[in-house]
Simulated assay, not measured.
Amino acid sequence: MSETHATIPPGAPVFPPGRYGRRREPGRRRPALAALLVAAAVAALGLASYSLYDKYGDPAYGAQLVSYSDITDSQVVVDFRVTVPAGGSATCALRARSHDGAEVAREEVTVTARPGESHVTARHRLTTSARPFVGEVVRCRPAG
């Protein structure tokens, strides 16, 4: 049956008969397939993230700032606690910042735990180039 002006609604496009092939019905959506593909992608990314963190992340070395004190125009004393593997050592980056946020001192300090212990409490004096406002432990990593 060919389309005529009497069989098509107003505003619908008119196609010549046989020119564009058979008209298809709107396709059935497959939400289950899309959800399955998304779940597989999320699982693959999660597995990759976990394996990379396990390989390159180092949760055995953690630092915690205990306090900073003795602030003068040229120094700050930083007390910090480091978690290391039992009897291990870590190199920690310490810094001091001025009131406007500028870094006025940075040093790397190596701390070593006593045999059988996994926590080290340390104190270090940072010599600064201007009056510090705060002392910080930036990060700790394996020594060496």
Rank of each mutant, 00 (worst) to 15 (best):
M1V: 11
S2E: 15
E3R: 04
T4E: 14
H5N: 13
G11D: 10
G11V: 07
G11H: 06
V14F: 15
F15A: 15
G18F: 05
G21S: 10
R23Y: 08
R24I: 10
R24T: 13
P26F: 05
P26E: 12
R29V: 13
A32F: 05
V38E: 07
V38G: 12
A41N: 10
A43Y: 04
A43V: 05
A44E: 12
A44T: 02
G46E: 04
G46P: 06
A48K: 09
Y50F: 07
L52Q: 10
Y53H: 05
Y53I: 01
D54I: 00
D54A: 14
K55D: 10
K55L: 11
Y56V: 02
G57R: 00
D58G: 12
D58P: 11
P59D: 02
P59E: 00
Y61P: 15
Y61R: 15
G62D: 13
A63S: 09
A63Q: 07
A63K: 01
A63I: 03
Q64F: 03
L65V: 01
S67I: 03
Y68P: 13
Y68L: 08
S69I: 02
S69R: 12
S69C: 06
I71N: 01
T72H: 03
T72I: 02
D73T: 05
Q75Y: 05
V76F: 07
V77A: 10
V77T: 14
V78D: 15
D79T: 05
D79V: 02
F80P: 09
F80V: 03
R81F: 04
V82N: 01
T83N: 05
P85Y: 01
P85V: 00
A86I: 06
A86M: 06
A86W: 03
G87C: 12
G87L: 09
G87H: 08
G87T: 10
A93S: 15
A93G: 14
R95S: 11
R95V: 08
R95Q: 12
A96R: 04
R97H: 13
R97V: 07
S98E: 00
S98M: 00
H99W: 01
D100P: 01
A102G: 08
V104C: 01
E108D: 12
V109E: 09
V109Y: 06
T110S: 12
V111I: 00
T112I: 03
A113R: 04
R114Y: 13
R114G: 14
H119K: 13
H119P: 12
H124E: 09
R125K: 12
L126K: 11
T128K: 03
T128G: 07
S129K: 08
A130H: 02
P132H: 00
P132V: 00
F133L: 02
F133A: 09
G135I: 02
G135E: 09
G135Q: 07
E136A: 07
V137S: 06
R139K: 12
C140I: 00
C140W: 04
P142F: 00
A143D: 15
A143W: 04
G144D: 14
G144I: 00
